[in-house]
């Protein structure tokens, strides 16, 4: 269970997140909200990339905020939105970056890498260079790197950016499967129909505050989402 208690974040004297409290259970949890509502900042705060002004992030009762980075790295995995790939390494070498931690046999690492590549269906182009892959293939390899960590908490920021509909569905299915397998997946999305279709739990942010959370079918047609986006949606996440 991921517990966020009264989390506030200030960047350049601007309050980005204000006293957010959430209890996030295993499954696919999707964060939505208008641009600038604090979705990515919330994910980065949980990952330890942004200094929290006040509040705490607890993972099974232990503070992630106070935890040392190498220990935290075993518990959570983070996939940034469009992360840079500075060198044209092979798909397998990139996935292997998820298993660079010390004190592990090569056999253990290879097993985790093979499994993650299989889950994301990227094993067929394992030896191809990242600059020779399509956008969808690249996105799945990046997700495989995050899965190879084998952490129980998976933080994913906009995994579908610039992907075609088929690739978006494939990506969401992998995340939903991870949720069903008992992982706690926290994913930022812009696409409300996809959120409606795949999310177990929906979290809506507006102006750095928690607007509402709950089951997607209940949250999507509600007044809070209408206020947040200035538009009305049906239970499937389509404009009405």
């Amino acid at each position: 269970m991921l517990k966020i208690k009264q989390l506030s974040l200030k960047l350049n004297d601007r309050l980005i997140l204000q006293e957010i409290s959430l209890q996030i259970a295993p499954g696919l949890n999707v964060i939505v909200g208008p641009n600038g509502s604090g979705k990515t900042s919330l994910l980065r705060s949980i990952a330890g990339l942004l200094p929290i002004e006040q509040g705490e992030v607890l993972w099974h009762g232990t503070s992630l905020t106070a935890m040392q980075a190498p220990k935290r790295a075993k518990r959570l995995s983070y996939l940034a939105q469009n992360p840079p790939i500075h060198w044209p390494i092979t798909a397998r070498a990139l996935v292997a970056l998820g298993r660079l931690g010390p004190s592990e046999s090569q056999q253990q690492a290879d097993h985790a890498i093979d499994q993650a590549m299989g889950l994301c269906s990227v094993d067929q182009f394992a030896e191809r260079r990242m600059d020779q892959l399509s956008g969808g293939e690249r996105a799945r390899v990046l997700l495989a790197r995050a899965l190879a960590v084998e952490a129980d908490l998976l933080l994913v920021d906009e995994p579908n950016a610039a992907l075609d509909p088929a690739q978006q569905l494939a990506m969401m299915q992998i995340l939903a499967d991870q949720g069903k397998a008992g992982k706690t997946v926290l994913c930022v999305l812009h696409d409300l129909p996809l959120a409606s279709r795949f999310a177990d739990h929906l979290i809506v942010l507006q102006d750095g505050k928690l607007a509402i959370e709950g089951k997607p079918k209940a949250v999507l047609p509600g007044p809070e989402l209408r206020t947040a986006f200035g538009l009305a949606f049906d239970a499937e996440g389509h404009f009405v």
């Binding site: 990339l49 980075a69 935290r72 983070y78 660079l100």
Partner: peptide, 16 residues
């Protein structure tokens, strides 16, 4: 190696 994916990924992976 981890800096291949930028500083954020390296930091979350526990590397300073």
């Amino acid at each position: 190696d981890l800096l291949t994916l930028g500083e954020d990924t390296a930091m979350v992976s526990g590397f300073s």
